[in-house]
């Protein structure tokens, strides 16, 4: 399959596909980070994760329209405002859902799965009623258009670079919150031993709610970032959910580093295979390999050493 291409062409193909893979990697990381917090640390399956992302995307869409109508002078900057709004909107919805639904179901993870699936259906229908069934796209600020030529055969799109920078930034922020803030300390304490954490005076109920809210907020920011590279529809969230869960599980549910490593390997494998095979076969092969590895090593790539 390589014989049709010359060496330099092959190099360029790998570089371009590698870069496409990096963008996919950023997308996966953005999607998976929120889930890694919620699923990895709390053990809650949130099937509505995709819909929280879509909420962020719609918030971004509304913000861009608002800026275009009222503040055209600073339109280039709207995205940063939109990201903050997306975090707040998704996070607030997350807090509410935790209070109304999730906290009653902590002892029944499989039921959480079904209930959040129901939530995702409701949200989808709400989006459809409010924003219409058609996909909407935001107008990208001028400075994010175009591409950077690296060599005469390799070009990289600027919005792709932006998403990558964003993914790196959010990963660092999540890392900081997880391992340097008192909230992170409490979350990790709870995930290791809930009863003891409760006994030493950590407010576990509030920490759970905050964790769920932050996880959903991160999902909202991810959705906001997605508007830079694609359009948003009411059912788009459902397309991501399997990929996202596989990324988190493959990485080892409780490990942030594992999530990033698995996002990297899955995205690179998929985008390089995509060039040589059809898109669907590349996807099937990638998923099969991931599921195959998970069957041999169910705990995922990285594991925390815990005494059960």
């Amino acid at each position: 399959m390589f014989s049709d291409y010359s060496m330099s062409e092959l190099g360029a193909i790998f570089a371009m596909q590698g870069f496409a893979g990096l963008i996919l990697f950023s997308v996966f990381v953005l999607m998976a980070l929120g889930l890694a917090i919620i699923f990895g640390q709390m053990g809650v399956i949130n099937m509505a994760h995709g819909e929280f992302m879509i909420l962020g995307a719609y918030v971004t869409y509304l913000t861009s329209n608002l800026f275009a109508a009222w503040l055209p002078g600073v339109f280039g900057m709207y995205f940063f405002v939109a990201m903050i709004l997306a975090f707040i909107a998704s996070g607030a919805l997350g807090l509410f859902i935790e209070w109304a639904m999730i906290r009653h179901l902590y002892k029944r993870p499989l039921d959480t799965l079904l209930a959040t699936w129901g939530l995702s259906l409701i949200l989808q229908q709400v989006y459809r009623s409010v924003f219409g069934a058609r996909e909407v796209g935001v107008s990208i600020p001028d400075w994010m258009m175009g591409s950077l030529p690296v060599t005469d055969m390799i070009e990289v799109p600027i919005n792709g670079i932006f998403v990558m920078v964003l993914a790196t930034g959010i990963s660092l922020a999540v890392y900081y919150m997880m391992f340097r803030s008192s909230w992170g300390l409490q979350v990790r304490a709870i995930s290791q031993n809930r009863v003891m954490a409760d006994a030493v005076g950590i407010n576990t109920a509030w920490t759970d709610r905050l964790t769920f809210g932050i996880g959903c907020g991160v999902a909202g920011v991810a959705g906001s970032a997605f508007t830079m590279i694609g359009s948003t529809g009411p059912t788009a969230g459902q397309l991501y959910i399997v990929d996202t869960f596989l990324v988190v599980v493959f990485g080892g549910a409780a490990s942030l580093l594992g999530t990033i490593a698995s996002a990297f390997s899955i995205s690179q494998a998929q985008s390089i295979m995509e060039f040589f095979l059809s898109g669907s076969m590349a996807k099937v092969l990638t998923l099969l390999v991931v599921v195959g590895i998970l069957m041999i090593r169910p705990q995922g790539l990285f594991t925390l050493k815990l005494r059960k």
């Binding site: 639904m101 009653h104 179901l105 029944r108 039921d111 959480t112 079904l114 209930a115 699936w117 129901g118 939530l119 995702s120 259906l121 409701i122 949200l123 229908q125």
Partner: peptide, 10 residues
């Protein structure tokens, strides 16, 4: 259907 999922669980 979404409401049914939630109701049947909760």
């Amino acid at each position: 259907l979404g409401g049914l999922f939630i109701a049947v669980v909760m």
